[in-house]
Amino acid sequence: MTDQGNDQLRPMPEDWRRALAVVAHPDDLEYGCAAAIASWTDGGREVVYTLATRGEAGIDTIDPATCGPLREREQRASAAVVGVSEVEFLDHEDGVIEYGPALRRDIAAAIRRHRPELVITLNHRDTWGGVYWNTPDHVAVGRATLDAAGDAGNRWIFPELTEQGLEPWDGVRWVAVAGSASPTHAVDAGPGMERAVRSLLEHRAYIEALTDQHPEEYCRTFLASHTDAAAARFGGRPAVTFEVFSR
């Protein structure tokens, strides 16, 4: 049996022009994905962010009515650092997102609106590998995104979307899952790393509530620990990893 830990990660597909990143919360993409996104936008590719919530339940010391708008502002600023100008929010309730037809429909609608070839989401499995438990929101949104990539191309699933002018889009070729414990592909993190640090740092209110460590030191250390860990499987280069599902 082949030891997966010794398998080399493949480069991400490059024959695409538009990507849609769908995650649960502000900061989900910045915890590891932003270096790849910076490289893609540098190359002239378009990336759009769709967030299921505004992260309003994410900071214990700030009430949701105040926290939601704050985290939305931080997310828009964070996206701009890596060349993403379009950020939309689906307004599901933070912390209690429910997997099901309503979530799949909202994500399928986003896919039909933006018509990506590549869809990006976050780990949809119960754990991050081993005993590190994932959150229900990540699981629900990741799983619904994988399903919605197919829903978006079927006019008989959610026909109300067609009635709203959102024609079916069967052009999704890959769904790339960030934060997977079973990655298959990677992107060189080097060119985009400094902007990835600055992008995560834009979530300052969240980070300052999370840790007493200096915010920039925290961001740089966290991101480097993950990209450096992937280097052995990517030709010695620090890398952002993805588990890629072809369609």
Rank of each mutant, 00 (worst) to 15 (best):
P64K: 14
G44P: 10
H25T: 05
G43R: 12
L29H: 09
I37A: 01
I62G: 01
R76Y: 01
V22Y: 00
S39Q: 10
R45I: 10
D63I: 14
A21L: 11
D28P: 05
H25L: 09
A65Q: 13
E72P: 02
I59L: 13
P64Q: 09
V48R: 12
A21N: 02
A35R: 08
V48E: 04
G55Q: 02
T61K: 10
A57V: 08
A77D: 13
C67R: 02
P26D: 06
R71M: 11
L20C: 02
L20S: 07
P64I: 08
R54P: 00
P26M: 06
Y31T: 14
L51T: 03
R54L: 09
A34Q: 06
S78E: 03
S78N: 05
R71H: 08
T61A: 15
D28I: 11
A38N: 11
Q75I: 03
T66C: 00
L70A: 12
R71E: 06
E74M: 13
R45E: 06
L29Y: 01
E46D: 14
R45H: 01
V22S: 06
V48K: 08
I37S: 01
A57R: 13
W40P: 03
D42K: 15
L20F: 10
E30M: 05
E30V: 04
V23W: 05
E74V: 13
G58L: 02
C33M: 15
P64E: 12
R54N: 07
L29F: 11
L51G: 02
T61E: 08
S78W: 01
R54F: 06
T61W: 00
G43L: 10
E72V: 11
E56M: 03
T53Q: 04
V22T: 03
L51I: 08
A57N: 13
L51K: 04
Y31G: 11
H25K: 07
C67T: 07
P69N: 11
G44L: 12
P26V: 07
E56R: 06
E30P: 00
A24F: 09
E30H: 04
R54Q: 13
A36F: 12
I59K: 11
E72H: 08
R76W: 05
T66I: 02
T66N: 07
A34D: 06
V48L: 09
R76D: 00
T53N: 10
G58A: 14
E72Q: 15
R45C: 05
A38Q: 12
A34I: 05
T50Q: 08
A35M: 11
R71T: 06
T53F: 07
T61M: 07
A36P: 03
L51N: 09
Q75N: 11
L51Q: 02
L29G: 06
G55S: 09
E72M: 14
A34M: 13
D28M: 09
I37M: 08
R45L: 07
A77N: 14
G55Y: 00
